[in-house]
Every structure is written in C-alpha cells, then in structure tokens.
Design a protein around this nucleic acid. Structure first.
Length: 353
DNA sequence: CTGTTAACC
DNA sequence: GGTTAACAG
C-alpha cells in the first residue's frame, strides 16, 4: 500500500509499468523468470535450520514471563514489557496485601544486562508506572510483590499515573461489580509524531544508564464477560492514552480506539481466539464512566483524615481542601467532625465544659 | 489509590 | 544500601 502510493506519487504510470516489468517479469533484461516448475529446485536449496542455528537462536525477542497473577511479554532491548495481561475477579480485589511491604526491584530471572534498575528512574522526572496494577492484587502479598518487578514497569508521567490512569485502573476494578470476569491487557507504545518537515518520526526519551524508553502512549484492552448468566454477552474496549498529564475534564471514551487500530500500532493482536462477532462495545450504554474527580479527591482526603494524628494536622487537611475550592461531601464533613472529637485532647474537652 | 524524596542507622 | 517517615496528586 505504502509502496504503491510512493511510486505513483513520484513517477508516471508508464515509468511504474517499466519498473514493474523489469522487476517482476524480467522482460527487458532477459532475466529468466522463475516459475512453479522450479519449486523443487528451491526446496532442495533451503538450508537446514540445524546448521544455521547450531549455536542457538538469538535470545533477544519478546519473551513470555509468568507471574502469580499476571503474564507479560518482555522486550529485553527496551527493558519494558510489550504487553501485560491480567484476569480481574472480585475475590482478588479484597485482602490484606499492602503495597508498603512491596519494593520495586529487577526481576531476578531477567539477566541484568536486559533489565532496568531503580537507578534508571531515580531523578529522571518519570515515575515507575505499573502495567499490572498493585491494587489488582489485594488478595495476596506475593502476587502484589510480583507487580513491583521492573519487568512490569514503564516510565510514566507522574500526574498521569496518579490521576487519570489511576482512575482508569479503578474503573477496571469496578467492572468486576457488573461482570464475573474482567480481562485487561496493558502496555506501552511509541507512536510516530508528525514534525514540521511534514514527515513522521518515532521519537522518545530514554532514561538512565539502561536507556529505558519513555513511551509516548499507554494502552489498555478490556474484555468483560459474565460466567454466571447464560447470556454470552461480552464487552470489549481498546484505549490509547497519551503519557502526559490528562485533566479530569477528559472522558475515558475520548481515548477509545477500534481494536484493530491499536493492534496495528502495537504489532500484536489481542484476544485472538475470541469470536469478535458476538462482542459488544464496552462503552455503549454509557458504560465507560470514570469515577468523578470529586469523589476521587474526597476518597483520599478521607484517608488522610483517618490517619491524622493531631488536631492541627486534621485542620490543615480541612483548610487545604477548602482552599482548593472543592466543597466537602457530607461524608467528609461527618468524618471531619468525628475525627476532631477523637483527636481533641482531654484537657481541651474539659475546658469546653 | 498512585507515587517521590529526605533522613536515618 | 535498606528502612522509615513525610509529602503530593
């Protein structure tokens, strides 16, 4: 397609035909055409793989790696995953696994020359973004620990990671409330950019001594189904999100793309064995709503209030929120009053009486 | 929840 | 270096 476009754009139709006849038919130079009659000759001419690969195949391709609760294809030349697949269920989202007990570290199974290190990310300006989220593995500490291997990590914009992408991951988890099975495949992309000279270039920063590529975009493919009900209704959505801060004004659907478009740029097909004819659009019926930014903020303000150790700290959180002009919800206000009462020293309480 | 940085032994 | 505490979206 590209070749044809290039040729017809640069040359006349007659010239194109001339080139065609030279290359394919060999009519002008008298080159003997190869035909099906020669097939046997070529067949015998094929070298034996045993000979060529006597000393093994180059071990540089994407390799499948299996962990407790996710599987990924790892690109050793980029020190990042190509894709990471996981299976979300309600059960896996509940438990006592604590991310504070986990540490980012290289997967010991990956040769160090093909692995990134924490030092690559330190001071780089980019955060270590999980592809399989830690929060999807509350049921098991070791499964959560697995997600902290750097094989599962890509350089990600901090605000994107903590904000939009975070809410995107929450959205995936919330889907388990409607569906028994949620399958998610995530990964980095390096997409071409149209530059001033009118040409497209793939350009990305690399960080640290390992030169870890900073993806221009991240993708997710989500497939949901209900095993319990007889209806085979499955829903699928593919998304490409730029690796930059994304304001809460943007809806998730803005980043939805046809699955094939993603597959084309990712160089991978997803859910190959799925009968796509039966599958419906995940985002139909208004199903692709991220949790509202306000609820998102209030959730963490609530957590901070619960952890506040002094009245001053509590007041600071309260005032900080007010300064941001985000009005507290009723729950937050109740929590504030509650904590205030709890943290109030006995003597102060006595003085009030 | 998502993370980083600074300080410490 | 590994762990802890404080901080930020």
């Amino acid at each position: 397609m590209y070749t044809q476009g290039f040729l017809t754009g640069a040359l006349s139709a007659a010239a194109v035909y001339a080139i065609y006849t030279v290359l394919v038919e060999g009519s002008l130079s008298g080159i003997k055409q190869s035909s099906n009659h020669d097939a046997e000759f070529h067949k015998n001419d094929i070298a034996s793989g045993e000979d060529i690969l006597k000393y093994g195949v180059p071990n540089r391709g994407p390799a499948l790696r299996y962990y407790r609760n996710h599987i990924l294809a790892y690109d050793q030349s980029k020190r990042t995953p190509v894709w990471v697949a996981e299976h979300l269920t309600k059960e896996k989202l509940h438990g006592n696994a604590d991310r504070r007990k986990s540490k980012f570290r290289p997967d010991p199974a990956v040769p160090s020359m093909f692995s990134s290190g924490n030092g690559d990310y330190l001071g780089s300006g980019w955060s270590r973004g999980h592809m399989a989220p830690a929060g999807d593995n509350k049921y098991d500490q070791e499964a959560m620990d697995d997600t902290f291997y750097l094989t599962n990590i890509v350089p990600q914009d901090m605000e994107n990671n903590a904000g939009f992408w975070n809410r995107f991951e929450m959205f995936c988890r919330d889907l388990t409330k409607q569906f028994t099975d949620v399958r998610v495949i995530s990964g980095p992309l390096a997409l071409p950019n149209l530059e001033e000279d009118g040409k497209k270039y793939v350009k990305y920063e690399v960080i640290g001594d390992s030169m870890v590529p900073v993806p221009t975009h991240l993708f997710k493919v989500i497939l949901t189904e209900n095993a319990e009900t007889d209806q085979h209704s499955q829903f699928l959505g593919a998304f490409i999100v730029p690796n930059v801060p994304i304001s809460s004004e943007h809806k998730l659907q803005k980043f939805q793309v046809p699955l094939e478009d993603l597959e084309r740029v990712a160089g991978v097909t997803f859910f190959d064995k799925l009968d796509k004819g039966q599958v419906q659009d995940l985002c139909s019926s208004d199903r692709c709503q991220l949790i509202p930014q306000k609820h998102f903020e209030m959730h963490f303000i609530g957590r901070r209030m619960e952890n506040a150790k002094t009245v001053e700290e509590l007041e600071n959180i309260w005032n900080e929120m007010k300064n941001k002009k985000s009005k507290p919800t009723k729950d937050i206000k109740n929590l504030y009053e509650e904590r205030k009462e709890e943290l109030m020293p006995d003597r102060m309480r006595a003085e009030l009486k």
